[in-house]
């Protein structure tokens, strides 16, 4: 080997050693870029070696070329490897330094909500819709004849005492005391087809407004009319409803009651879903919650609606969505519902 030859090869070796040493000193990507320019750029010694190849003796060229390639590849490999390390280190440092207080409040969009009664009504609609009940609505100001007469409350009948009525200055017109006049309207609307509807809406009773009674309240009433509707169907339908509205193992019980527009009539209690029937404040330690009135549609009501009571039968049931909401959310004062205090409404 010639001296020249040894010289170049030694120089390349020295460049490699120097470059690798310098690479270890690089701290960030800028250092890496500078290093790259210096040791792998156009003017870098390795690159110069390639330039100088044509000046070298022809027989030496392969040897020097081979060496220069070897050094260049080694430097590139080192750069890749070390570059990855630097990047990782930088990411680590950045992640470590970029820490939020995740307990600080976020930026909330303003959130609106449905009134709790609307939410309960929707739930009731949904459950009954799946059983084929459609919503049917009628007016809040109603004729006495429909609110009472068509529902088998004859004038001067003691049953009229059951509901304290707001009358208007027209003696024939009142604020409906229940959604039951909707039974008459629904029958007149659907006749002679069978009926399966729910009748929701605001009703009015002359009461003192207290934590447990209101002058206006919603009611949701069920009405089924058909040629093959039984008392057992009424109980089964209500039980299905209760199992979905409350819990699937909620027990129900019926007690005889009286409504002029149904016969037989019943009051339905559900086993208190709060204490499981063991007794608590909500159920006043009785284990039962009174939630709805129901019964088989009275023959006179069917007849008034255009259905022959010898041929058709039906059932009706009425419940108060506010009461159900109160039970579900442990609300102890019914006056919250129309009080429109945002601190109440925004809890739903």
């Amino acid at each position: 080997m010639t001296e020249e030859q040894t010289n170049i090869l030694d120089q390349l070796e020295a460049v490699r050693a120097e470059a690798l040493e310098a690479l270890r000193g690089a701290k960030d990507e800028n250092d890496l870029l500078a290093w790259r320019a210096r040791y792998l750029g156009k003017a870098a010694p390795v690159m110069a070696a390639f330039q100088q190849l044509r000046n070298a003796a022809p027989d030496l060229r392969p040897l020097i070329g081979q060496k220069a390639n070897e050094v260049k590849n080694a430097l590139e490999a080192a750069l890749t490897e070390f570059g990855e390390q630097v990047k990782q280190a930088r990411l680590r440092a950045s992640l470590a330094g970029d820490k939020l207080d995740v307990t600080l409040p976020g930026r909330q969009p303003e959130r609106g909500r449905l009134h709790p009664t609307t939410q309960t009504l929707r739930e009731i609609y949904r459950i009954f819709a799946e059983m084929g009940f459609q919503v049917f609505q009628s007016t809040e100001v109603e004729l006495d004849e429909i609110n009472y007469g068509k529902l088998n409350f004859p004038l001067h009948h003691p049953a009229r005492d059951m509901q304290d009525t707001f009358f208007t200055t027209d003696p024939d017109v009142l604020l409906r005391t229940h959604t039951s006049p909707g039974q008459y309207h629904a029958m007149r609307h659907f006749h002679p087809e069978p009926i399966r509807v729910i009748l929701p809406g605001m009703c009015y009773r002359y009461e003192q407004v207290t934590y447990r009674s209101e002058i206006q309240f919603n009611q949701v009433e069920l009405l089924v009319v058909g040629e093959n509707v039984t008392f057992g169907d009424l109980i089964g339908t209500l039980e299905d409803f209760v199992h979905r509205m409350f819990t699937p193992d909620t027990h129900i019980r019926l007690r005889p009651n009286y409504f002029p527009f149904t016969e037989p009539s019943a009051e339905m209690d559900v086993e208190c879903f709060i204490c499981g029937g063991k007794g608590c404040q909500v159920c006043k330690h009785s284990g039962w919650l009174e939630i709805l009135g129901c019964g088989m549609v009275h023959p006179n009501v069917l007849r008034n609606g255009g259905y022959d009571p010898e041929k058709y039968s039906g059932f009706a049931a009425g419940m108060g969505p506010e009461r159900i909401t109160m039970l579900k959310h442990h609300i102890t004062d019914i006056r919250y519902f129309w009080g429109n205090d945002l601190r109440f409404l925004q809890q739903f």
Partner: peptide, 27 residues
Amino acid sequence: KADLLEELTRLYGYNNIPHTRLADTLP
């Protein structure tokens, strides 16, 4: 007849009546 059905079911026990699902035609 409805009056009698009421007395009859009351004595039979409302809670002894089998719970059934509506089998009548869907309107």
